[in-house]
């Protein structure tokens, strides 16, 4: 077994260990690398800044499950903080069954921080299954799909939703999703009804949504923890997103090194084997 082969067959647990160390160290010795803000993030920030205070609400669709929490929860917290500090009303809903508890906890956390009142400054519509049918139904009348909020209060008894009927009355919608919900909002809320849609998605999904940015089908986009960190910088409230960036950078360096080594080993191994074959012939 040559050195290349040995490297190719390294017990992967050593790699897990290296990655574990690369994550943990920056938590104790932060590098505080600067976070620069990209256009899609700035555009989403500006769009939310244009939503009028104490008027028609921002619709925040917290469509993620615990599996994508570390990327998407910092985003929702930053967005809620931004909205609440601008006195923008926020209506929260979820299209993912596992998003129910997560939406509630982040909404309550931000509202408590900012001293917001349920029903007047924010409300929680709860969960509905059916994705496209729900989104399309809300285009006619939100009450057809959500006759009552998550706690059984009829929507007509919630002061901040007075006069809010459908997408015509919602200046901005932001979806936070790690699955096709983000695209569904573009397809079924923006396309038929002209609703302005912004999205925060996991980094995996960001490439899927880029085509919608150029065409204006999305007003802005946050991609992964990095997007969350940029938004936290914009609102001047660094939190989990910014904190995770150092670990992110250190792991990226480690992975780039591993990829380079892996490729050297792969091609080196191939050459060695060819040489051996030639010698044998």
């Amino acid at each position: 077994m040559n050195i290349f082969e040995r490297f190719m067959q390294i017990d992967r647990r050593w790699i897990f260990l290296a990655i574990g160390i690369a994550v943990v160290i920056p938590f104790f010795f932060p590098l505080e690398l600067p976070v620069s803000v990209t256009d899609p993030v700035q555009n989403l920030y500006d769009a939310l800044d244009r939503v009028p205070a104490n008027g028609q609400p921002l619709l925040l669709a917290i469509d993620y499950a615990p599996a994508t929490l570390p990327e998407l929860e910092p985003m929702s917290l930053a967005l809620l903080r931004h909205a609440f500090s601008n006195d923008v009303n926020v209506a929260v809903l979820t299209l993912h069954p596992a998003g129910y508890g997560l939406a509630e906890r982040v909404m309550v956390q931000a509202a408590d921080e900012m001293g917001k009142v349920y029903g007047e400054d924010y409300c929680f519509l709860g969960f509905r299954p059916g994705l496209s049918a729900v989104i399309l139904g809300m285009g006619v009348n939100v009450r057809n799909v959500f006759p009552e909020d998550a706690y059984g209060t009829p929507l007509n008894d919630i002061p901040m939703l007075d006069g809010i009927r459908n997408y015509d009355d919602i200046p901005l919608l932001i979806t936070l999703a790690g699955w096709s919900a983000a695209e569904a909002w573009v397809l079924y809320a923006h396309q038929p009804y002209g609703q302005d849609v912004g999205a925060g998605v996991t980094a995996v999904m960001a490439t899927d949504l880029y085509p919608f940015l150029d065409t204006g089908q999305l007003v802005g986009l946050l991609g992964g923890m990095r997007g969350a960190a940029e938004y936290e910088e914009l609102i001047g409230h660094p939190d989990a997103g910014v904190r995770g960036m150092d670990s992110q950078s250190s792991i990226h360096v480690l992975i780039i090194i591993l990829i380079i080594l892996g490729n050297i080993a792969y091609f080196g191994d191939r050459r060695k084997k060819r040489e051996m074959e030639r010698d044998a012939a």
Partner: peptide, 28 residues
Amino acid sequence: SFGYTVMSRVSLLIGRVGFLLQDWLHLL
């Protein structure tokens, strides 16, 4: 796409490590 995904997966690990170190052990 691969690069973006690595970033995503790493974020999940960072989130969990942050939970263990901060929310559970209060080391930070």
